[in-house]
Design a protein around this nucleic acid. Structure first.
Length: 844
RNA sequence: GGGCGGAUAGCUCAGCGGGUAGAGCAGUACCCUUACAAGGUACGGGUCGCAGGUUCGAGCCCUGUUCCGCCUACCA
């Protein structure tokens, strides 16, 4: 007879060795490899390529990536073909800033080649660190599908995108005022701004009317822009200034003459109702400048310092010039008063300095004309959670500028463009030649097709990093047709984009634009937006958290490698699944212990099952559901009944809902109740038939297997290791993670009403034992049941369930007598008779 | 200024097709018990931010309001 060779499982749970075994197994078996030829529906995931600049990895990163990965593991077990790539974003300002800081250098003091080499090196190091974290966390990424936004394939894809958009008239080049970062000395897009509240001063400054020299008072927080003033404005219906129509004013100190104009947007109640418009204080100035064809008087240079046009203030930073100009105005009698005000200023997200405007030719992608189309795309998309949708919609509605994709930086994807130095004609690269670097590669033409000029120079700017990362679905689908690259257009649109909320206006929005422009589709069917893991105080985990809380052994509570080492990867993953999708969650180290406890509990429950099933033959026929003992039918029923809810949770990306249901079943029903009851059948064989034990063994074997499957997405290491030891020899499938997801079995689901009585007695006996200060497992002489007020039905159940009742009470006998403790069943009271206590061993 | 989340036990979070609240941790008591002491059993602990309203009945629906976080906005 074939009997199971009962495997040995070490008594102690050792996360590190389990993780080591599993990582090796997953590597060898290649179970996470995407196979385009396998049967089944594809489930493809567009994952965020992290920035190397975010090298301060913390548990918040682990949280959001894990939340998505749990759902992916579920889908894999549902039989989907998983396309789960990982990318690294190594373009752009974040990397440049990181390199600048790390090496304490800046753009001026290094060559382009040197700087790029450092960026590449830091990128390589950062990516390696990320990859190690993802592997430690057990993310089931197919590392063959890796991409890096600076690699040839991605540069090619980004440049092809540019050419395609150019061909479609969606991209244009224009010399107009652009948002400018005076630290990095580059243009920015609207999405690269943040706002910062600060205290400022509002100054009342007297201009004078050209005609009669009478004072015209304006209020401004930016007096340093007075030399840049090109007009004064008031509301068209403001009686106070009606007489100024068609006249001009003289700018104090600088003495140039500016027109006085009207605009509906001027608030007559603000300040004096008269405002100055400059080159350029804000987007409103730009609007008026364009509409009214105002003069241009740029006074702030690309580096944020005042230009010669600012006269004696040239060379000063805007901030210093602000004070100096106020001083000069005061001395000249033009400064009337100052009041402190709270103001919101736009700062550059990457450098943190207030943005200015600058003028330089830039490439733009037209987006303002397709707002309604983008809102429609947003509505088509499956948002999880749903309420995240408004964040995108508000952003789209509030867009003011087309997307500027030119960056005056070193490290990024070049534009595939050369310009004729004679006439300015732009000459684009051939698609076949991509990727190109126009600063190194020659132009495909030797002469300008417009004017015949032969001096053709490459575009020195690079593209906005989002120009590339907005293409991740197309990078994955090899839209650019890069030879040898995996993936094809059947992957587009993808199944789901996973990301956190802060990049909705950038990554999500730009990706929608690209797929719409290139292919007229959504990039994905669904989007899954995670929240953030916060520090103990409910704030974003910062670099200072990673420094401040580091102990003398180098351990830091927010640093994921250390947390994994201390509690195990499964523990950290389990914590990550604790908050509902989209919701932020505070990280407390002690909460990771819950995950650790679960892993240990699974381990020990499995050990217990193995101890009890000795002699069990998994290949022999098992008793049918109807032939099992009531406890066993009850257990299987309870287990079956959680499955639809668990599945519905996962299908809606609600891993947390699934986790709660599984948790309740495993901990309370399986461990606390069922395992405690079933022990008796093995410990008191004289009270039970062999059939009862056969039924128990079959049920334990089956239930543990389902439990491992259900927990597999959450704690993949522990469940895999147990599966390998116990079930793989029988089932053969090389990994738990590619076995079938447990399915609801209606034929193994049936109410077992008599178990309500047994469970009520179990609860009563536990209570009585606690009150009597008796151990829960010490054998009682007897359990007393008071059935004097019981219905005949109840009496019948009690008599039918006597062995079970004796089991839950761990009593030598069941007696029917008076008892005082009311059970949770009408007409039943319970008592216990402890009997002789065993003699205590007295320690000397 | 507008919007979106959150506000429930000391802590972290569930509960929301309305029927006077749950888990884990922390606390207390007991149990060295043949899976598990990083355990088990039991207990204590909440006027569900505040104020109104709808309803026989409201953490759950409506209105207003206060904090916290985030997004967004030209008040120069």
């Amino acid at each position: 007879m074939a009997t199971l060779n009962i495997p040995e499982i070490p008594k102690d749970y050792d996360a590190a060795s389990i993780e080591e075994r599993c990582r090796a197994l997953w590597e060898e078996t290649g179970i996470y490899k995407y196979d385009p030829n396998a049967p089944g529906e594809v489930f493809s995931v567009d994952t965020p390529p992290p920035y190397v600049s975010a090298a301060h990895l913390h548990v918040g990163h682990a949280m959001s990536y894990t939340q998505a990965e749990i759902v992916i593991r579920y889908q894999r077990m549902k039989g989907k073909k998983i396309y789960y790539p990982m990318g690294f974003d190594d373009n752009g300002l974040p990397t440049e800033r990181f390199v600048e800081k790390t090496y304490n250098i800046n753009k001026q003091k290094t060559t382009r080649a040197e700087f790029r080499a450092l960026c590449l090196e830091e990128t390589r190091k950062g990516a390696a660190q990320y990859e190690e974290l993802w592997r430690s966390l057990g993310l089931s990424v197919d590392w063959n599908l890796r991409y890096s936004t600076i690699d040839d394939h991605c540069r090619r894809t980004a440049q092809r995108s540019f050419l395609d958009l150019y061909g479609k008239g969606r991209v244009y080049r224009s010399n107009e005022p652009v948002l400018w970062d005076v630290h990095f000395e580059t243009a920015l897009a609207q999405a690269d701004l943040e706002s910062m509240a600060r205290k400022g001063k509002m100054h009342d400054i007297a201009f004078s009317a050209k005609a009669d020299g009478s004072p015209l008072v304006i209020s401004t927080t930016r007096p340093e822009l007075i030399p840049a003033c090109v007009a004064l404005y008031h509301h068209p219906e403001d009686e106070r200034y009606a007489h100024l129509k068609g006249t001009t004013a003289v700018v104090p100190l600088f003495e140039h003459e500016v027109p006085i104009l009207t605009d509906e947007a001027v608030d007559p109640a603000f300040g004096t109702g008269l405002m100055m418009v400059c080159t350029f204080g804000d987007g409103e100035d730009v609007r008026k400048w364009k509409r009214d064809k105002l003069a241009t008087r740029l006074v702030i240079g690309p580096d944020g310092k005042m230009l010669p046009s600012a006269g004696e203030f040239a060379g000063q930073t805007a901030e210093i010039a602000r004070n100096n100009i106020v001083g000069a105005l005061a001395r000249a009698g033009h400064h009337l008063k100052s009041v402190s005000v709270e103001q919101n200023v736009s700062i550059a997200e990457r450098s943190g300095v207030p943005v200015e405007f600058n003028m330089a030719p830039q490439w733009f992608i037209r987006v303002l004309d397709i707002k309604p189309q983008m809102l429609a795309r947003s509505a088509e998309l499956g948002w999880n959670p749903e309420w995240m949708k408004v964040r995108l919609d508000h952003w789209i509605e509030g867009l003011k500028y087309d997307w500027n994709i030119s960056r005056q930086r070193f490290y990024g994807v070049p534009f595939p463009v050369w310009y004729c130095q004679a006439c300015g004609e732009a000459i684009l690269a051939d698609e076949a030649s991509l990727p190109v670097d126009p600063l190194e590669d020659p132009c495909r033409l030797s002469a300008c097709p417009a004017c015949g000029g032969t001096d053709l120079k490459g575009e020195p700017d690079v593209m906005d990093t989002w120009m590339t990362s907005s293409l991740t679905p197309l990078i994955n689908a090899n839209w650019a047709g890069t030879p040898g690259r995996k993936g094809d257009m059947s992957l587009h649109p993808m199944t789901v984009r996973v990301q956190a909320f802060e990049i909705i206006r950038t990554w999500l929005f730009y990706t929608l634009i690209k797929s719409d422009a290139h292919l007229e589709t959504l990039p994905w069917k669904d989007v899954m937006i995670s929240g953030w893991g916060l520090n103990e105080h409910g704030k974003k985990i910062s670099k200072s958290d990673l420094e401040k809380y580091t102990d003398k052994d180098g351990y830091n509570r927010y640093e994921p490698f250390g947390v994994i080492k201390k509690f195990g990867a499964d523990a950290l993953r389990f914590w990550a699944a604790g908050s509902h999708l989209g919701q932020d969650m505070r990280f407390n180290e002690k909460d990771v212990k819950d995950g650790r406890k679960l892993a240990v509990k699974l381990w020990n429950a499995a050990r217990f099952v193995l101890m009890q099933i000795e002699g069990f033959d998994p290949e022999a026929p098992r008793p049918s559901f109807a032939d099992r003992m009531p406890e066993d039918r009850w257990l299987l029923t309870e287990l079956n009944r959680i499955l639809p809810g668990v599945e519905a949770g996962f299908e809606g990306y609600n891993y947390a809902v699934a986790r709660e249901a599984i948790e309740r079943f495993f901990w309370a029903t399986f461990c606390d109740d069922y395992l405690e009851m079933v022990k008796h059948r093995f410990w008191k064989p004289e009270l039970y038939s062999e059939e009862a034990r056969v039924s128990a063994r079959a049920t334990l074997w089956e239930a543990l297997r389902v439990i491992l499957g259900l927990y597999a997405p959450f704690v993949p290491f522990t469940t895999e290791d147990l599966y390998q030891a116990i079930y793989r020899p029988v089932e053969g499938t090389p990994s738990l993670h590619i076995t079938a997801w447990p399915t609801y079995e209606p034929t193994r689901t049936a109410d077992v009403p008599e178990m309500q009585v047994v469970m009520a007695i179990l609860r009563a006996v536990r209570q009585l034992r606690t009150e009597a200060r008796l151990s829960q497992t010490r054998a009682l002489e007897a359990v007393v049941l008071d059935l004097r007020t019981a219905s005949d039905e109840l009496k019948g159940v009690v008599h039918a369930m006597l062995p079970s009742i004796q089991a839950v009470a761990r009593a030598g006998a069941v007696r029917f007598d008076e008892a005082s403790y009311p059970a949770d069943v009408a007409g039943l009271a319970v008592g216990i008779v402890a009997g002789e206590l065993p003699e205590k061993v007295v320690q000397a």
